[in-house]
Design a protein around this nucleic acid. Sequence first.
DNA 1: GTATGTTTGAAACAGATGTTTGATTTGCAA
DNA 2: TTGCAAATCAAACATCTGTTTCAAACATAC
Lengths: 210, 210
Amino acid sequence: MAQNDTVTRILDAAEVLFAEQGFAETSLRTITAKADVNLAAVNYHFGSKKALIQAVFARFLGPFYELIEISLDAHEKQYPDTILSIEDILRFVARAMANVTEGDRGRLAIFMRLLGLAYNQGQGHLRKFLQTEYRTLFRRVMALIARATPELQPVERYWRFHFMLGAAAFTLSSMEHLRAIVEHDFDTKCTEEEVVGYLLPFLAAGIRAK
Amino acid sequence: MAQNDTVTRILDAAEVLFAEQGFAETSLRTITAKADVNLAAVNYHFGSKKALIQAVFARFLGPFYELIEISLDAHEKQYPDTILSIEDILRFVARAMANVTEGDRGRLAIFMRLLGLAYNQGQGHLRKFLQTEYRTLFRRVMALIARATPELQPVERYWRFHFMLGAAAFTLSSMEHLRAIVEHDFDTKCTEEEVVGYLLPFLAAGIRAK
DNA sequence: GTATGTTTGAAACAGATGTTTGATTTGCAA
DNA sequence: TTGCAAATCAAACATCTGTTTCAAACATAC
């Protein structure tokens, strides 16, 4: 399992470095040095840097995708025809994310930071990769939100969905930094769970404003 | 005024390209080509690429800073001891931004995208630049928000403030792209003003959730 | 143990990057 | 017009980038 070990070590190093510095700012030499692996290994195992970036995402999103699909399926089977509230939906998403990043505290921040980068970085080849790869999940969540907010016009609901996404991606991706400020300014520590606990009511109230 | 023209053309080209592609992804050669200016001009007029990035920000934030300070001063002088609501505060900020970016539609998106990049990019040398340079404005706005939300604990208010910032920065910076999707999926066009009109109630409801 | 295919390794590749140089042109004051 | 500083230009600089190469080391099946 030598090659598997090499692949894993590259992905581990890359995911941390990408989140810390961005994609363009992180060189393959930095990654391979941190992974203690030969430079050529990236191109041998992944083919290119671009493919490595997508592999980093796939390792995150694959399990997340499966987990949330499974839990939604289970819930719909157990309670058919129930309409989930916004809070319920958000809790499903949050729990799936927590499960995917469990063990490694701080990995949630990496996840969200990568997501934010993917949305904002470059010509959006990553955004397209994500949107085509996870279109069905996206549609499913959107449909749930639509049933939870029947009073909203579709366009406004669409925008409010992205307001939620933005609030989550932006803050959770800068979590370490923001938490450090909280600790300095308010002399209080915040756990990841507490921050998410602050976040969900904000999002829920926002999406059904007015 | 030859050098002034060169400086302006570089800043114009850089602000667009940075917003489109990010900082690291945009080379000085691309910038100077778009600006129709010699490559060496950047280092001659600004000293370095890093300094150019900060200059791009300064050209945005300087006028914004002055404008919002002036309008807040004027309001406090005319209506002393009145407590601004969240909606009022947000409207002040939004109006200052609209004025700063007026004329160039789409410049609001560039502004927000640069802001988001600055928050997420690299080791955060830009974030530090912003925070030290505009600390007083930040504190003033935070104090206004505190008076508008006396029921909130300081820590939760701090987080909710950044939730708002994230929702705004994330969505407004991807506005072109998101608007294109809206046009395709819902067969409706959204103006910048409409998006901001959707955003502010969302933020206001979020910050005083529960 | 030999042969076969896979994985690593050091080195080199071609190209792009930010920056510097030194000659040349420009704009303006004396 | 002359003189001089400021601004422009083409070229070169050193360094870093992703990628490729090919020999060596490795594992595995016969």
